[in-house]
């Protein structure tokens, strides 16, 4: 046991990847399952707020882009569930945990999409925040997760660009469109900052995750990076963020910003966000309505196998 643990520690220390067949501490495995499964759930639940506008996209080009983007998210969910499955859980089981609310997903998807500007702002801010969170995971110590993230990050960066491009078109359009963009930014800014989670500098969990190479930066480090990147982008769009405390700090060479409402964040994670019940009910309905289809395919495959054997 000590021997295996020493080998595991040495692999991590050498910045090498842990692979599915390697021995790993039980807590490492369980932490990874939580993180990867909930990441996968976030991709799948995240299809809903954007899918909400596919049928109403204002041009055929926007419709194609949005459809392709939401489809990518289904693909991302699949890659991530597959990574989680290498740790000894089953996608079906993880889906059950999701629809029974025994596992969570990113709080951001419990907010509604109320205008088409939200499609742009989700691409720009929400996917932008996700990129900040996800890029370090490309170097995650667990091989299957790191490999899934490399593929996802490449696609995600384009998602962000399409969002920003939509917003550029809108701010160069009518007054009504510009107002729509600002109103959307006002709604999404704070939830986007909350995507990084509460400060975790003194968290024993975070310290352990960092030691394991599952986590590379503190939540606040990632949030600061996001703020510093987003402010000039907002200026280029001609929109403002709803934070009076937002100001350049020449000493830190970074932007100061206000404190997000962590009570709201916790309430949303706990289940009382604006759209929690709707999102989970939707996913549950899709999964349960599909049960007869999945069973039929299985029954057909079994029959075919029996016919070949006969």
């Amino acid at each position: 046991m000590d021997d295996m643990e020493a080998r595991f520690d040495a692999t991590i220390a050498a910045d090498q990847r842990i692979e599915p067949r390697d021995w790993m501490p039980e807590a490492y495995r369980r932490t990874l399952i939580r993180q990867i499964a909930q990441h996968a759930h976030s991709e799948i639940i995240g299809m809903q707020p954007e899918g909400n506008w596919i049928l109403r996209a204002p041009t055929l080009r926007r419709k194609a882009i949005l459809l392709a983007k939401v489809q990518d998210e289904a693909g991302h969910g699949m890659y991530l569930y597959a990574a989680a499955e290498t740790l000894g859980v089953d996608r079906e089981e993880l889906t059950e945990k999701l629809i029974e609310s025994k596992q969570k997903y990113s709080s951001i998807f419990n907010y509604p999409t109320l205008s088409y500007a939200d499609i742009g702002v989700i691409g720009w801010l929400v996917d932008g925040a996700a990129i900040c969170n996800q890029v370090p995971l490309c170097r995650c110590s667990y091989g299957p997760y790191a490999r899934a993230m490399i593929r996802i990050c490449k696609e995600e960066s384009f998602h962000q660009r399409q969002g920003y491009e939509l917003l550029l078109a809108m701010v160069n359009g009518t007054d009504a469109q510009r107002e729509m963009v600002q109103e959307s930014v006002n709604r999404w800014w704070w939830p986007s900052l909350m995507m990084f989670g509460p400060p975790d500098d003194d968290s024993p969990n975070s310290a352990q995750s960092m030691k394991w190479g599952i986590k590379r930066h503190t939540n606040d480090e990632l949030r600061q990076r996001f703020v510093d990147m987003s402010v000039p982008q907002a200026q280029a769009l001609g929109v403002t963020f709803p934070d009076p405390a937002l100001a350049w700090n020449p000493e830190r060479q970074s932007y100061d910003y206000g404190e997000p409402d962590w009570d709201e964040f916790k309430a949303v994670i706990a289940g009382s966000g604006p759209a929690n019940a709707q999102r989970v009910a939707h996913r549950r309905a899709a999964h349960e309505n599909g049960a007869w289809v999945r069973e039929a395919a299985q029954a057909y495959a079994d029959k075919q196998k029996a016919r070949v054997a006969a």
Partner: peptide, 10 residues
């Protein structure tokens, strides 16, 4: 979209 019986079918 988001209603298919399995992710592969999505």
């Amino acid at each position: 979209v988001s209603n298919a019986p399995e992710l592969e079918e999505e």
